[in-house]
Design a binder for these strands. Sequence first.
DNA 1: AACGAGCACTTGTCACTACAACTTTTTCGT
DNA 2: ACGAAAAAGTTGTAGTGACAAGTGCTCGTT
Lengths: 368, 368
Amino acid sequence: MGETKHRTLTDALKAEILSNKYAASRAIPSETQLSRKFRVSRTTVRKALDALHHEGWIRSVRGRGTFVTRQGAARKIGLVVPGVSYSEFFPPIVDEISRLTRDSGYTLLLGNAVDRRPEARARQTISFVRDFVAEGVAGVVYQPIEMIADAEKANRAALSILDAAEIPVVIIDSDFTKSPRRSGYDVVGIDNVAAGMSVAEHLMSLGVTKIHFQSRPLCSASVSDRRSGVIAAMSAFGAFSRNFRDFKAEPDDIAALKAHLKRGRPEAFVCGNDTAAVRLKISLEKLGFRVPDDIRLVGFDDVKYAKIVTPQLTTVHQPCEKIAEVSFRRLLARISDPSLQPCTISLPADLVVRASSGQPMSSAKKKL
Amino acid sequence: MGETKHRTLTDALKAEILSNKYAASRAIPSETQLSRKFRVSRTTVRKALDALHHEGWIRSVRGRGTFVTRQGAARKIGLVVPGVSYSEFFPPIVDEISRLTRDSGYTLLLGNAVDRRPEARARQTISFVRDFVAEGVAGVVYQPIEMIADAEKANRAALSILDAAEIPVVIIDSDFTKSPRRSGYDVVGIDNVAAGMSVAEHLMSLGVTKIHFQSRPLCSASVSDRRSGVIAAMSAFGAFSRNFRDFKAEPDDIAALKAHLKRGRPEAFVCGNDTAAVRLKISLEKLGFRVPDDIRLVGFDDVKYAKIVTPQLTTVHQPCEKIAEVSFRRLLARISDPSLQPCTISLPADLVVRASSGQPMSSAKKKL
DNA sequence: AACGAGCACTTGTCACTACAACTTTTTCGT
DNA sequence: ACGAAAAAGTTGTAGTGACAAGTGCTCGTT
């Protein structure tokens, strides 16, 4: 089997195309020229070109020649993330997208906005996107900017640059518009409303009724969806009105937490994500509350230290690798057919029950 | 261009494969046999077979022969719907799926459960699914059974038959498990939670605060999601506690409606779907209430008569053709790669504002 | 200067040949 | 009767040759 002549020729041509040897407007060497250059028959050249054609690298016009297609010319993919180290959500995504791009013969351009100040990250993102357009990427995987005042406007600004260049985009994690509005791009992530519902249903199944939701002042659309899910589930149980309350503050803000608890103590805190949950746990302990004995705690994302902290954190697993894989496949599909209907693709997110959500109420009451 | 020899040969072979002339276990005639039979050179035969190979109809083994693949052998798609005439949602779906299957060289087997009694439709569905397995379909588009007591169990029973035969399934409209649970199959539809939120936000933007949600006693998962969306949006406005109420009854049940209204009149009714909304309108008028002057009304689905009735019905558009198209594409993708990650694909559903949701409150109050 | 015929070049189709690599069946020696 | 070798089948690779069909340029005629 091994290396056949047409196989080596296909690979050689792919490599030449990848190295930008051929402009998209000019034809590549003709079949007879190739057959002379590589010392093979025209039959073999045609077989190699057929393979490239089927894989979408080239297209031929009788009488004129063979040309490199847009996909063939621009086998680069851009990935925009607001700081890889900023959340445990990103590293596995970057890894997986890197692997997939290489496997598909693409080159990955990473636009990693690293700056402590969110506003600076927004500016960086814009400049990354401009670079991507200049580099002629075939498509972009985009993680929206969050945690700034006018996040939607900033995201629109970045994405409109890609739109103008007719570059396909797939958004990962969560749309940058608050539900029920949509941005009009493909979005790949988990169903955050459903995730919120599972958490609330789990707590209520333990007999918990007083549930407070912690979120930071400028929270992302995904956190806001999780909150909606908690509310929807509590309402379905008729347990909403007096039992739900928002704690909208930084989880480290002990003064705010003290003030919040003075107005009524919840049986459980649901936090916008695991990072916040762990920080809130520390704040609670500083105020003398134990988790889960005094107050139960649940987060989202299932980051690594969720099962390292004591008590281990009940959370909702975020399938990062799957999100990366599905979003990349979707981007390839959209590159080859830009007329695809924009849609939201949500993957299963399983509830992971650990110690921080505590035991059923009856036994908990015995302890008191 | 017209008909070339290798083209006509590919088409002839496709037709022969479709007519089940070749068993999957036996090889099709060898290249030399085909070249004699069709009086063309082996080169031409190979070109035709190459095309069929690229389209996934056949696979060849050196020394043994060329075989029809599973996809090639079973180019049939099954479609299960619980009564085409039962909702305006189904006819465009059936039309679109028919068109797409034919365009892709598939034959459509329609499993249309028609019976007044929902339990009978469940039994019919099971028998359709058995037929599909016997016919060896390559995949099934499945609209879940609704409106019966143990709908989930019935759907599981039908789908487990397909699972046992390893036949890919795509569910359309909405999953048969109540959120946040998932069935584990691909689901293509709209985001019903978001749809509910848009409706509630629209009403609240008109100044409406008292919103009641009508749903039938055995409602589908989609209706229950829409309800969750309404609740979530109202809660976000802090307008939930005393202003939301469920009206869980048949929209024709005038006695129940009278009793419901006695306990407090809403400013607007949101109904589980348009059919229910139109029926509720008639009931309201029988009790002397005008729509939208006395009580506003909103539905879901944007069925044809939503803009024929007086007043025209405010609703959320259900993109049936798109749902059909996306689900069919997804099914094809899953047939060629069964290891794909199951996911929920939701399409944009736009709010269609018409007369039944009325004018902003200020002007409405002047009328009173 | 404008036009058209012809030419050189491109890809597309088709035929025939030869051999390699592999599998199944047959044959032949033991 | 059995087993190994040979034969006859299959697909895969590679080459040669010829012509058809389409494009673009040149050159000669008007």
